[in-house]
């Protein structure tokens, strides 16, 4: 089955000097990230947060949601594998996390397996019809709650139940369209292996999404640094440099990755 061509999105000023419509930004609230993004993620974008195990994908995504909820933007975490109550427990390590954000519904956690069960999607693989229903369920949830920030953790785990590349391509494309129509900025977590050479398991998702934030562990003379780099962000004149990050109780901190010595395994 041929996938339809991506529909036209709102015009964007891709580079400084362009005269297109200036997109509203979704200020992530992660100071360093907003700086290198030129003020935040263009609102309504679908962004892949790609990285291998232990690189900080979930932590970055959670901070994005908490900072949003603090700013009055309702935030939704769709968990595919990890139970929400365990995730909420882990949030207590963040000094900026307030439980009242969860209590008052500013920060919402939903376990995707619960949705599967309610929708009777109990098979190992999801059919195209089931994917369509799942997509509409997520859209309705976002619309009814007025969600402005969404995290799907992870797209990779969801993808294990999707049989073909065409299906996952269609799913990501339509999810991006729906979220864009709702003015909801979405982070889609993508688990990759260091040697994979691409930003998603299937390799088709990365071409469809609006942005890619890549995280990896870089080695320099035996020491390991967590590194972040914006690979692409449509509508944003963003930095392409590499930044070392640390996940601290006060949030994600970033500093330029020193280039005096190359990391092992780099070109």
């Amino acid at each position: 089955m041929e996938s339809p061509a991506p529909p036209a999105r709102a015009p964007v000023p891709a580079r400084p000097g362009d005269t297109g419509t200036v997109l509203e930004r979704c200020i992530t609230g992660i100071e360093g990230l907003d700086n290198i993004l030129g003020g935040g993620i263009p609102r309504g974008s679908a962004v892949l947060v790609a990285g291998s195990v232990g690189t900080g994908k979930t932590t970055l995504s959670l901070e994005f949601l908490i900072r949003g909820a603090e700013r009055g933007e309702r935030s939704l975490f769709l968990s595919v594998t990890e139970a929400s109550d365990k995730l909420v427990q882990n949030l207590s390590t963040f000094e900026f996390f307030r439980t009242d954000l969860v209590v008052d519904g500013s920060l919402v956690f939903v376990d995707l397996p619960v949705i599967y069960e309610k929708l009777g999607m109990l098979g190992a693989e999801l059919s195209s019809e089931e994917l369509d229903i799942l997509l509409r369920t997520i859209r309705d949830l976002v619309r009814s709650l007025g969600v402005k920030r969404l995290v799907l953790d992870s797209l990779t785990s969801l993808g294990y139940r999707i049989r073909t590349d065409e299906q996952i391509r269609e799913f990501v494309l339509r999810l991006g369209e729906e979220m864009n129509a709702c003015g909801c900025t979405a982070l889609l977590v993508s688990e990759i292996t260091p040697t994979q050479g691409r930003y998603s398991t299937r390799g088709v998702e990365e071409a469809i999404v609006d942005g890619i934030i890549l995280l990896w562990n870089a080695r320099r003379r035996g020491d390991i640094h967590r590194v972040l780099q914006i690979i692409k962000m449509r509508g944003s004149a963003h930095s392409h440099a590499q930044y070392v990050i640390e996940l601290t109780p006060i949030g994600l901190l970033m500093t330029p990755h020193l280039k005096g010595a190359r990391s092992e395994g780099e070109d």
Binding site: E246, T248, I250, T255, P256, L258
Partner: peptide, 20 residues
């Protein structure tokens, strides 16, 4: 910080303490 070679970590810990 694990090592004096972890220069970025030193910068980030200084930043952390300044903010904290």
């Amino acid at each position: 910080v694990e090592s004096p070679r972890a220069l970025e970590s030193i910068m980030l810990r200084v930043e952390y303490l300044l903010r904290r």
